[in-house]
Simulated assay, not measured.
Amino acid sequence: MRVGRGATDELGDVITGLGLSRPLLVTDAFLEQTGAAERMLATLQKAGLRPRLFSGTVPDPTTDALSPGLRALHDHEADSVIGFGGGSPMDTAKALALLGAQGGQMRDYKAPCVNLGPALPVIAVPTTAGSGSEATQVTVITDSATQEKMLCLGPAFLPLAAVLDVELALSMPPRLTADTGIDALTHAVEAYVSRKANPFSDSLALTAIATIGRHLRHAYADGGDIRARGAMMLAATQAGIAFSNSGVALVHGMSRPIGAHFHVAHGLSNAMLFPAVTAFSLHAATARYADCARALQAATPADGDATAAAKFVDALHSLCRDLHVPSPRDHGIDQDAWNRVTPLMAQQALASGSPANNPVVPTTEEIQDLYAQIYA
């Protein structure tokens, strides 16, 4: 990992040092339009590399959208893939790296399958502070035929290198800053309360929670706050490493179907769910949620665990209010449509496996009740 302001200038050296020469630069239309992709290509060419650009990434990447990327990968005879952008370009890059080496369909690799490789090397260059995808062995791809958001896991998806440059995050608008920031906080908290939590993931999760608590509101209010932006980028990566080693839980399990059926950004759907799911889970991991409250500075060391845990739920409600997180209703989702797909979303949430990591493993009926609670 290369971390620091201006770190993208070192990207060519990173790739050369790995013995690679023909990267496919995977990004989206926005970064191409702003000129950021062209500047990245120039940096790579200056280092003596032979890159090719693929800017066809779509939000919440789909299997259909992977096809042109796979053609570009093969046409270029790429020996590596650079994921440049937010979670969607990085997830796309990971998927292309695996399919480029193994072939088949993306549904062949969805959970519970654990993918060991082979895959082309992935170098991640995030421009947002949220997904943590640069440090995880996870990619999420929507099946275009079924609209299922497929969780795909395994070391084959872990980037070989990552470059964290705060300058790339300075153009993030407030809504994206809020959504990705709460996404990172969700990663950290779910990593800490997960049934698979361990001392390694715990230390990173608590550090990320504390950092996000200090800096997210500042980054949201002032996008040019370089200190807050840099802190949020590092916290997102720490949270990504944490959940890659302990798993996410019920918030993520319920979030993915919302994104698939209603095209809500992943971070925003997490934010919609976060307070209610935490309140539902509180009694089964009171001490753990109390630790999260203290790290977030929502409670003091003098508060007992029950008091601190309750304050944590209040703090999440306050954060969502301050960052203007809408409910599904306020986001424009029709209530009849929401109610109609709620049973299916509940089934898909459970099938993803993430709810099994939750302090309380819910029933399908309990998940449906939570969807009903958060609608308005």
Results as ranks from 00 to 15, higher is better:
D183K: 11
V166Y: 05
K149P: 03
L160R: 15
E167H: 07
L158S: 07
L185G: 12
Q147M: 13
L176E: 01
S194Y: 01
L170E: 06
K149S: 05
L168F: 05
P159A: 06
A197W: 12
C152M: 09
A188G: 07
A162C: 09
T142L: 00
G181P: 03
V193T: 07
K149R: 14
P173N: 07
A191C: 06
A191V: 03
Y192C: 02
P155M: 06
T180M: 08
K196S: 00
S194F: 01
R195V: 02
T177N: 10
T142W: 04
T146F: 01
L170K: 12
P155A: 03
D179N: 15
A156L: 02
D179C: 14
A178P: 02
S144A: 15
A197P: 13
Y192D: 00
K196V: 00
D179T: 15
L160G: 14
K149C: 04
S144D: 06
S171L: 08
T180L: 07
H187A: 11
P174D: 04
D179E: 14
A156K: 06
H187V: 05
V166K: 12
P159F: 05
S144F: 05
A161K: 13
L151T: 15
G154I: 04
C152T: 11
P159V: 01
A184P: 09
V193D: 00
F157R: 10
H187P: 12
C152S: 15
A188Y: 11
L168D: 09
T186P: 11
A145P: 08
A188S: 14
A188F: 11
E167C: 06
A184Q: 12
E190Y: 08
A156Q: 02
A169H: 11
C152G: 10
A184L: 06
Q147H: 15
A145Y: 12
P174V: 03
L158W: 10
V189K: 07
A184F: 09
E167V: 10
T146L: 01
I182Q: 12
M150K: 08
T177V: 04
L153A: 04
L164D: 11
C152N: 13
L164A: 12
A161G: 05
T142C: 13
D165I: 01
R175E: 00
L164M: 14
K196T: 00
A169Q: 10
A145Q: 15
L185M: 09
E167L: 08
D183G: 08
V189G: 06
L170R: 14
